[in-house]
Computed example of a mutant assay.
Amino acid sequence: MLSKLITTAAFIAIGTTAAFAHSTLETTEAHVGASYKAVIRVPHGCEGKPTIALRVQIPEGMIAAKPMPKPGWTLEKVKGAYEKSYDYFGTPMKEGVKEVVWKGGSLADDEYEEFVFRAFLTEGLPVGKTLYVPLVQECPDGATERWIEVPAEGKSSDDLEYPAPGIKLLEKKSVH
Rank of each mutant, 00 (worst) to 15 (best):
E114W: 03
K155W: 04
P43H: 03
S106E: 15
L170V: 02
C139D: 12
V150N: 03
A10W: 04
A38C: 08
W73G: 02
A53I: 06
G128V: 03
P151E: 03
S156H: 08
A65W: 03
V97W: 08
V127G: 05
F89D: 15
T28Q: 15
A10T: 05
R146H: 03
S85L: 05
D159A: 08
G124I: 00
P163E: 11
G90F: 12
T16K: 06
A9N: 04
M62R: 01
L169I: 10
P67N: 11
Y112L: 13
K155N: 04
E153Q: 11
Y36H: 14
A18Q: 10
D141E: 09
M62H: 11
A152L: 12
D110S: 14
L75T: 10
A30C: 09
V32L: 07
I12P: 07
F117N: 06
L25A: 01
E149L: 07
P43N: 02
P92C: 05
A119D: 06
F120I: 02
T74R: 10
L125K: 01
G90H: 14
P50Y: 05
D158S: 11
G90A: 07
F20R: 13
V101Q: 10
G33W: 02
T74W: 09
K172H: 09
G61T: 00
E161R: 09
V101A: 04
K4R: 07
L131W: 01
E29W: 04
E123R: 15
G154D: 01
A18M: 10
I58S: 02
G105L: 03
Y86M: 13
A18E: 01
I63N: 00
V136G: 00
P134F: 11
G45P: 00
P67K: 05
Y88D: 12
H44K: 09
A119N: 09
T91E: 15
S106V: 01
I63D: 00
H44Q: 05
Q137H: 13
V100F: 11
I6E: 13
T28K: 13
R146I: 14
P59D: 03
T16H: 07
G61D: 03
A21N: 11
G154Q: 10
T16M: 07
V133F: 13
G154E: 03
T51V: 15
V136N: 00
P134Y: 07
T74F: 09
S85W: 02
V136C: 00
T130F: 03
K94F: 02
V56D: 13
A53S: 11
D87S: 07
E95P: 12
A10S: 09
P69A: 07
Y82P: 06
W73R: 01
K49E: 14
I58V: 14
A9P: 00
G72L: 03
Y132F: 12
D109P: 01
D87Q: 08
L2N: 13
P126S: 07
P92Q: 06
E171L: 02
T130D: 06
S3C: 05
A38K: 08
S35G: 10
E138Q: 11
E47A: 05
F115I: 12
F20K: 14
P69T: 05
I12E: 07
K103T: 04
G90N: 10
T27W: 13
K84D: 05
S106L: 00
S156C: 04
